[in-house]
Amino acid sequence: MSKGSDAKKARRRKRRAARQTRLVPQEMVDGLADIPDAVVADLAEFDQRITARGWTFDEEESNDDYAVWFYEPSGAEVEDGLPVTSLWLDAAEDGAIVRVVFVGSVERYEFTHEELADDGALDVIEGYRVGQPLPRF
């Protein structure tokens, strides 16, 4: 097999494994006891909505301060910036602002949940691939 074929199969296995671990882990949900119920419900709804679109909850990067998701179809080998488009919510802001960094970039974009869902920004974010000009919102 060629290196390209092996890499493709490895990416496919990673995607399949990620599909089975998309939801926010129960341990993290249990740790949200100090956060108002409405915020926890909003986080769960947000997680459900974006994981249904192919985003994966990033257990390694998420912690008590940030909840992080990545969009695996955007992944690429890059010299600078993130290797995959990522978004995160900040617990200090009760997750009110969604921050996005595109694959191969360090530039941060900020959206409200309404802007992300209603204005089609999420479609643009998911459609971006490394090497394209960064979107303007």
Rank of each mutant, 00 (worst) to 15 (best):
K3L: 15
K3S: 13
G4R: 08
D6R: 15
D6V: 14
A7H: 11
A7M: 14
K9T: 09
K9L: 13
A10L: 11
A10S: 09
A10V: 07
R12Q: 12
R12N: 08
R12F: 07
R12E: 14
A17Q: 12
A18V: 07
A18W: 05
R19D: 12
T21C: 10
T21A: 11
L23N: 14
P25Y: 08
P25M: 14
E27W: 09
M28L: 10
M28W: 10
M28I: 07
G31P: 02
G31S: 09
A33T: 09
I35F: 07
P36Y: 00
P36A: 13
P36H: 04
D37P: 02
D37L: 14
D37S: 14
A38P: 00
A38Q: 14
V39N: 05
V39W: 00
V40S: 07
A41F: 00
A41Y: 00
D42N: 13
D42G: 09
A44M: 15
F46L: 11
F46Q: 06
D47M: 03
R49F: 11
I50Q: 01
T51R: 01
A52E: 08
G54F: 06
T56H: 09
T56R: 08
F57C: 03
F57P: 04
F57G: 04
F57Y: 11
D58F: 06
D58I: 09
D58M: 04
E59S: 15
E59C: 12
E59F: 02
E60Y: 06
E61H: 09
S62V: 12
S62F: 06
D64R: 15
D64H: 12
D64A: 15
Y66C: 08
V68L: 12
V68H: 06
F70Q: 03
Y71H: 04
E72I: 13
P73K: 03
G75V: 06
G75P: 00
A76E: 11
E79W: 03
D80N: 10
G81I: 07
L87N: 04
W88L: 01
D90N: 11
D90I: 02
A91T: 07
A91N: 08
G95Y: 02
V98R: 04
V98Q: 04
V98K: 02
R99K: 14
R99M: 07
V100T: 05
F102S: 06
V103C: 12
S105D: 12
V106N: 09
E110Y: 05
E110N: 12
F111V: 02
F111N: 06
T112H: 04
L116V: 06
L116M: 06
D123E: 15
V124D: 05
V124T: 11
I125R: 08
R129T: 07
Q132F: 05
Q132Y: 01
L134W: 02
